[in-house]
Nucleic acid binder design. Structure first.
Lengths: 229, 229
DNA sequence: ACTGTTAATATACACTGTTTATTGATTCAT
DNA sequence: ATGAATCAATAAACAGTGTATATTAACAGT
């Protein structure tokens, strides 16, 4: 009468493993992740983990998928309070959310956008979907601008013919996207990522409290170039 | 009469260690670097390495400094054939050199711009100088544009007062730089790095042979925004 | 020729991911 | 209700890692 569920601690343990993995990652960084250390903290033997994850890489993959989900949720949520036709502020909001999430969950950010573990390469077939989903909000912001007829195609027009083909295969992951939208979204992502990546990795000076200002300047440059009135 | 130098194989071994380290990094990636594997390949015992490097992190630091040097050399060399007043082509050349170097020496790139080794954090006091030297060519390109009176300060003017202070402490590493130059150079670096970083980490579609075109478009956007005639 | 230095070794410790065989408890079918 | 089957967890072991210690061996300088 005490325990009724058939496998109560099974999925519990799976989640507990991931939870303590996140805990240790947050504390010591992703590459220091150790199955034995996780087991120790859970009062478990290390091989027991192999009942829930094929090997350490599989655990890392699961963590990466979780990180992408967390990232995608934060991207999506940033748009909730902005009017659908307030394109400039949507770009600002989703851009700021990118940087804020990276600073708040630095280790998740590094897990996704750095090389997290010795010899690990993310299996695209598993990580692809959650990865694609996480950048979809940005694509939708840009697509809405394009549909509203306010997307500047000046920069893309000259090279569009050559790149429609290159984007084609990528759409298997991101879904059907207009090439111009694809180009602009990629450019925005690239600029936003460049700033945040250099910042997170310590290649930029520490901006302190008003670190937003410089970043917002870059977001404004994006709007000046791609958002026509 | 055979050996005259006092410590002939000392620096030889130091270089050999780094050389085989690079060899293994190029083959298996930076995080798989193993002192024992290096020793094995050199027909040496692992502890012998400790005579040349305090520990594995010290070896990694040395490799990072070498990587920065290689990177800085490539940045500098890209400008050799471009006329000093051909500012547009200088931006193009140094930007393309950035991407080409990253593709040619991917592991060196990751060593610098990713989190290479479990628990490793680059000691700024050692890495700083070579790091600063490696981006100096970009700063000089931008500074030349500013001195020629062709640097557009529109984006920076509103936030300059707030950021002169933040840049101040950074100049201990990069040397004396005009704030506007600093801002524009950082922005260019950020954009260039964002593109290449996402590309190298596999978050961008593979662009194939004409991968330059999309990247050149981004370089042209930079010129349109910051290089006034 | 002796001494001091120092590079290299051998050995050992504590850690890692992973495999194997074994235990023990739970569930299912008869 | 009892026997069979399943499966999570363990114990033990293997191969690998970085690193500390003590020891050997070769060299340089006086």
């Amino acid at each position: 009468m005490l325990k009724r569920n058939s496998k109560p601690q099974l999925s519990n343990l799976q989640d507990s493993i991931k939870a303590t993995a996140w805990k240790q990652i947050a504390e010591y960084g992703a590459p220091a992740l150790s199955l034995r250390a996780i087991a120790r903290e859970l009062n478990i033997t290390a091989p027991a983990i192999y009942n829930y994850f094929a090997d350490r890489d599989a655990l890392v993959t699961a963590l990466i998928i979780d990180a992408f989900t967390s990232f995608g949720d934060s991207q999506q949520a940033s748009l909730d309070t902005i009017a659908a036709d307030d394109h400039a502020n949507r770009v600002n909001a989703i851009g700021l959310a990118y940087r804020n999430w990276a600073h708040r969950y630095t280790q998740r950010y590094l897990l996704i956008f750095s090389v997290p573990i010795p010899g690990y390469v993310a299996p695209l077939d598993q990580v692809g979907p959650s990865s694609a989903r996480s950048i979809r909000p940005l694509f939708e912001v840009v697509e809405a601008i394009r549909v509203a007829g306010r997307l500047n195609d000046e920069a893309y027009r000259p090279i569009q013919p050559a790149y429609e083909a290159a984007f084609e295969q990528w759409r298997a992951y991101v879904g059907p996207v207009h090439p111009l939208t694809h180009f602009v979204a990629m450019t925005i992502w690239s600029r936003v990522h460049g700033f945040v990546s250099l910042e997170i990795h310590g290649h930029f000076p520490p901006f302190g409290d008003n670190g937003d200002a410089l970043y917002l300047t870059e977001l404004h440059s994006v709007q000046r170039q791609f958002l026509k009135s």
